[in-house]
Nucleic acid binder design. Structure first.
Length: 181
DNA sequence: AAATGCGCCAACCGCGTGCGC
DNA sequence: AGCGCACGCGGTTGGCGCATT
């Protein structure tokens, strides 16, 4: 197992200097062999910590700050579809990391999702309509799915979900892969 | 103004998986 | 086939800042 447990290693928040060191090292050598990165860069950190810092913060394409409405809606819908598969959800939202999405879910969306579950079926259709029109107008770069099918309001009848909808091939193949195992 | 509570986010931890030897 | 290393994932925790009393 990867157990970088070493009492002498730095832990906790990263300093600006550490960030710079790590970013420079990765820029020269690439984001791989994190244990080597940790040692050769001179950072007194474990490889795991370096990897996480790079992925969640230092990567040039990582988008930080507020989630747009479209991103939020997408997270809600994807979570309803596939559950706590944060990395999968993150792959569908450019610039967002699994950790960030997970945090955002726990901080903001969990309550919201619960609330929505309690609402009568009103308005899944109405919500969807809203959703699409908002997304059409906000012009995000989200790799949007075109339709999420329907139903599944109570959150535990996944098999009734229509993953054959356009744009959901990835979900379909994902589910098929899961079934194969 | 001080104390306390709460929410949010960054980071850590443990475990599973993939891959090379 | 078995082993060890490296990576990736999801759950959890710690600390900071803001709001409330």
């Amino acid at each position: 197992m990867e157990n970088d447990g070493n009492a002498s290693l730095n832990k906790g928040a990263w300093s600006a200097d550490e960030d710079t060191t790590l970013a420079q090292y990765v820029a020269h050598h690439g984001p791989k062999r994190w244990k080597t990165v940790a040692i050769k860069s001179g950072l007194n950190r474990c490889g795991k910590s370096c990897r996480l810092r790079w992925l969640n913060y230092l990567r040039p394409d990582v988008k930080r700050g507020n989630f747009s409405d479209a991103e939020e809606d997408l997270i809600l819908r994807l979570h309803r579809l596939i559950g706590n598969r944060w990395s999968l959800i993150a792959k569908r939202i450019p610039g967002r990391t699994d950790n960030e999405i997970k945090n955002y879910w726990n901080a903001h969306l969990r309550k919201k999702a619960k609330l929505m579950e309690k609402l009568p079926a009103i308005s899944i259709a109405a919500m969807k309509e809203n959703l699409w029109s908002e997304e059409a107008s906000c012009g995000t770069e989200i790799q949007e799915t075109e339709d999420i099918g329907g139903g599944n309001e109570d959150g535990d009848d996944d098999e009734s979900f229509d993953v054959s909808a356009p744009g959901l091939n990835w979900v379909k193949s994902f589910l098929e892969l899961e079934e194969d195992v």
